[in-house]
């Protein structure tokens, strides 16, 4: 194992993640996920609409992986921003917890 080949792995990972960021807004299924679908099937309608009306505890800057008024391009940007945020946090975390540090 060399540091160089691990950097290659990193670049491949970033490339795949960015490719997914670009494709997901167009290819990802808009259908509800397993939990939402189950909720729609097993919760009474009146209670379901009550649950849906409740605001999240903290409002997020890019709800549902979108940027207001930017359509599909905004969705691509949102997922790409998230990908880089996760990368950056992982590196900062890695530096802090690096056993050789």
């Amino acid at each position: 194992m060399s540091g160089k080949s691990n950097m290659k792995f990193l670049y491949a990972g970033i490339a795949i993640a960015l490719l997914l960021s670009v494709l997901a807004p167009f290819l990802a299924s808009p259908n509800p996920d397993g939990l939402e679908s189950a909720a729609g099937g097993v919760i009474e309608e009146s209670k379901m609409s009550e649950l849906e009306e409740m605001e999240p505890a903290v409002s997020s800057p890019m709800p549902d992986y979108s940027i207001e008024g930017m359509g599909k391009g905004g969705e691509v940007a949102a997922i790409a921003i998230g990908t880089f945020a996760v990368l950056a946090i992982s590196f900062v975390f890695g530096k802090v917890f690096n056993k050789k540090a």
Partner: peptide, 22 residues
């Protein structure tokens, strides 16, 4: 360590992105 951090970061980024692909 220095060797494993890029692998961890790559997997974390990949996991985040693939979770957007329903």
């Amino acid at each position: 360590d220095e060797m494993k951090i890029p692998i961890l970061a790559a997997l974390a980024a990949g996991v985040f992105a693939i979770q957007a692909m329903n």
